[in-house]
Design a binder for these strands. Structure first.
Length: 435
RNA sequence: GCCCGGGUGGUGUAGCCCGGUUAGCAUAGGGGCCUGUCGAGCCCCAGACCCGGGUUCAAAUCCCGGCCCGGGCGCCA
């Protein structure tokens, strides 16, 4: 406290409490007036009575509008009569910080629900809703829990570059940026630099950061800008080691949410449990048989589609009662050059799916220089263009692997949100870069 | 990028198929009444058919184009 903000507040000899917030409702009954304020913890009702409350407080609150920002000092009512609030205060003093324009572009009280585009156009007002704030409180706890687990297990947080001089993988579209007199790109994934950090002798790392994809995706599960928690570890036996880390990290994140966000989960009507480990693992080529049994035909050696992901969830739900599951040993031909092959056809390449949605890709990476370069050729790429990356594998690379979990996707599925944009404060998609 | 669906007061919707009233309702807004409201209540007021073209005596309504939005697919986290 202190400074200009508390000027004009005098607690009085008898003391009192000080509250602040955004005006949620004003109910004027003539001789009595109620002003309900909300902040990110609670709702508080200020009760003003004619003849009891000083007249200047009535005059002050005459001009109040919904969403105005005020502070108040007063006596807390011990036996509050107000039902739908956490506290009731009889104010002795009110400070108005900001009068809101009376015509709001949407209603944070949600008497008339707004559509998602309207909400996102007016996101700062939308964010005032306790249900919306709950999503981000939960997300923060989720990340806290995952980071805590990683640190306790010897992982070091690192920052890898967001601007890269060469498109990091084939496939996903990249955003081009002007980099002095050259062209550069925003990273789609911190993948390759995590590997180079491993080669730099950092044995267990994670990078919590932003990724960009310039895909024209119009779906409820894609963002042009998203965050991932990307883990890489050295001296692994095989891809199973990365899977164990991934499932424990996720369990720790969810455990934290369950422990400290019960109020928010209840508000969102979400019944959350920490998933059991190990997560079920499905493997190619058996995946084709499972899908065949479920009436879905996918050509042997090819990748599956979105519908298959949902069918496989249905399968593991029936067989194991699980929402999280791994799919391992993808065909090498559908995965990037850097994955480690198990044999000629299949790779130690692992996806983690949650409720039928891909949450992460990962697995064991190829660390042997000659094989890595030959895999680049096999992909029809020019080894020269990737030399900036591959050359360091010639100077000592340990066996390693990792994964990158999409944070908004994890949050969305955990809370059964209908759209991933609900899990980003200010989401970016092909149509939206403002606000 | 391809395929579907949709744009009505500030917000959310009815009306559109089957063309013709003052375009209805809720909520927010303005004014009034009310001493315990809590989605407060009651009375009054103001406020809208995405843009352009076409068909027609007449278009929110039918047709074409554009713009915007949502969903499905592909790609991926």
């Amino acid at each position: 406290m202190g400074g200009r903000r508390s000027e004009g507040i005098h607690m009085g000899e008898e003391g009192g409490v000080k509250v602040h917030g955004w005006v949620s409702e004003i109910r004027d009954l003539g001789r009595i007036r109620f002003v309900v304020i909300r902040n990110w913890r609670e709702k508080i009702q200020l009760t003003l009575k004619r003849g009891v409350t000083p007249d200047d407080l009535f005059e002050l609150t005459d001009d109040l509008t919904q969403e105005s920002v005020i502070e108040a000092v007063g006596e807390e009512v011990a036996e509050k009569k107000a039902k739908a609030v956490d506290r009731e205060i009889v104010p002795a003093r009110i400070i108005v910080h900001s009068i809101a324009h009376p015509k709001l572009p949407m209603d944070p009280n949600w008497k008339v629900p707004a559509q998602l585009p309207t909400r996102l156009d007016n996101r700062p007002l939308d964010l005032r809703r306790p249900e919306v704030q709950a999503v981000f409180k939960i997300e923060a706890s989720l990340i806290h829990g995952m980071e805590e687990w990683l640190r306790e297990n010897g992982f070091l947080r690192v920052f890898t570059p967001a601007i890269i001089g060469a498109a990091s993988e084939s496939g996903a579209e990249v955003f081009r940026v002007q980099y002095f007199d050259r062209e550069a790109y925003l990273r789609q994934d911190p993948q390759l630099h995590r590997q180079l950090t491993i080669i730099g002798g950092f044995e267990r790392i994670y990078d919590l950061g932003v990724n960009w994809r310039a895909e024209l995706s119009h779906t409820p599960r894609h963002l042009s800008e998203f965050r991932s928690i990307a883990v890489e570890l050295a001296f692994i036996e095989n891809e199973q080691d990365t899977m164990r880390v991934e499932e424990e990290m996720i369990r720790a994140g969810i455990k934290r949410v369950v422990e400290e966000r019960s109020k928010e989960l209840e508000l969102l009507n979400v019944d959350l449990e920490v998933p059991k480990a190990p997560f079920p693992e499905l493997r190619f080529p058996k995946v084709y048989d499972i899908l065949e049994e479920m009436g879905k035909s996918v050509e042997y050696g090819e990748d599956y589609d979105t519908e298959s992901e949902r069918l496989l969830w249905q399968y593991v739900k029936q067989e194991y009662g699980a929402d999280f599951f791994f799919v391992n040993r993808f065909p090498f031909k559908v995965k990037p050059f850097y994955v480690m092959k198990e044999d000629e056809t299949w790779a130690r390449s692992v996806d983690l799916l949650y409720k039928g949605l891909e949450l992460s890709s990962g697995g064991q990476r190829e660390h042997r220089y000659d094989i890595l370069v030959s895999q680049i050729r096999e992909k029809g790429m020019n080894p020269k263009s990737l030399e900036w990356f591959t050359k360091f594998f010639a100077y000592g690379a340990p066996p390693h692997g990792g994964f990158a979990v999409g944070i908004e996707r994890l949050t969305m599925k955990m809370l059964d949100l209908p759209n991933i944009k609900e899990a980003a404060l200010f989401p970016r998609d092909p149509e939206r870069v403002l606000p």
